[in-house]
Simulated assay, not measured.
Amino acid sequence: MDYAIIAAGEGSRLAQEGVKWPKPLVKLNGVTLIDRLIDVFLKNNASSINIIVNEEMTEVQEYLNKLQLPVPFYLLVKSTPSSMHSFYELSHFLDGNNVCLTTVDTIFKEEEFSKYIQAFQENDQLDGLMAVTDFIDDEKPLYVETDKDLMIRNFLDKNNNNCRYISGGIYCLKRTGLAVLNNSISQGMSRMRNYQRQLIAEGLKLKAYPFSKIVDVDHAEDIQKAEQFLKS
């Protein structure tokens, strides 16, 4: 399993709220966000770990360049206009058939994540298994419309009253999904949610995988919330 981490955002809201560390180096219960993800991935069949950070994050670059990992590790330093473009840049270094992508501030329970990865690896019929949750604490959630078998029908900016879940920001994809990513870029698309819609438009088989709770660290107050969530 190739793992990819998008850590290319500026983290401007955290900085404005007095958090001195760049987002990837923010600590939850004494562990940085980036180290936590790397550790979880290594425990879940990582064949490679690939991270993109923006050009201004020199402190993060220095931190990551010192890492010694037991699997191939690639750090890409490049500023991009969106997370979709960040994924596209990382996709050039993903050689396997299975990839798991997440952003650096996505917080989940490790036990649930392990079951999610196992479910994806055991299902050869899917093009993608997308993490979802019915816990909504996002400023602009992406609603996920599914059928009774949790096959994804659509991704919506607003709930049409048929959506129990929102996107959790963790994506397991086969190489078919990377082909759609290339198409999306060539068509001038931006934003991950538009890419996800394109996956459906091109007929890929996507299934939702419910997590009990997934939270993002966007604001200073989210740090304590995330720490309590991980302790619970």
Rank of each mutant, 00 (worst) to 15 (best):
His92Arg: 14
Val99Arg: 12
Leu67Phe: 05
Glu56Val: 07
Val104Ala: 15
Leu64Thr: 00
His85Tyr: 07
Glu56Gln: 09
Cys100Ser: 12
Pro70Ala: 11
Ser48Glu: 07
Tyr74Asn: 15
Glu59Met: 06
Met57Gly: 03
Leu94His: 09
Asn98Val: 06
Gly128Pro: 03
Val77Asn: 01
Ser79Pro: 01
Leu67Asp: 08
Lys115Ser: 12
Thr80Asp: 02
Gln61Ile: 14
Gly96Tyr: 09
Asn65Trp: 02
Glu59Ala: 11
Ser114Thr: 15
Glu89Ser: 08
Ser82Ile: 05
Gly128Arg: 01
Lys66Ser: 06
Val71Trp: 08
Val77Glu: 00
Met130Val: 14
Ile52Asn: 01
Lys109Phe: 05
Leu76His: 01
Pro70Met: 10
Glu56Cys: 06
Thr106Cys: 15
Thr80Ser: 04
Glu55Lys: 07
Glu112Asp: 15
Gly128Tyr: 01
Lys109Ala: 14
Glu122Pro: 05
Thr102Val: 11
Phe93Leu: 10
Leu75His: 00
Leu67Pro: 01
Val77Thr: 08
Asn98Ala: 11
Tyr88His: 10
Glu55Ala: 06
Leu64Cys: 00
Ala119Glu: 10
Val60Asp: 03
Tyr88Ala: 06
Val60His: 02
Ser79Met: 05
Thr80Glu: 08
Ser114Met: 13
Ala119Gly: 07
Ser79Arg: 03
Asn97Phe: 11
Gly96Asn: 15
Glu62Cys: 12
Asn50Asp: 02
Leu126His: 04
Phe93Gln: 13
Asp95His: 15
Ser86Arg: 07
Tyr88Trp: 10
Phe113Gln: 12
Asp105Leu: 09
Met57Lys: 02
Ser91Lys: 10
Asp95Leu: 15
Ser79Phe: 08
Val60Ala: 04
Phe113Cys: 07
Gln61Ser: 06
Phe120Pro: 00
Asp127Met: 02
Gly96Cys: 14
Asp124Ile: 08
Cys100Ala: 09
Leu64Pro: 01
Lys66Ala: 10
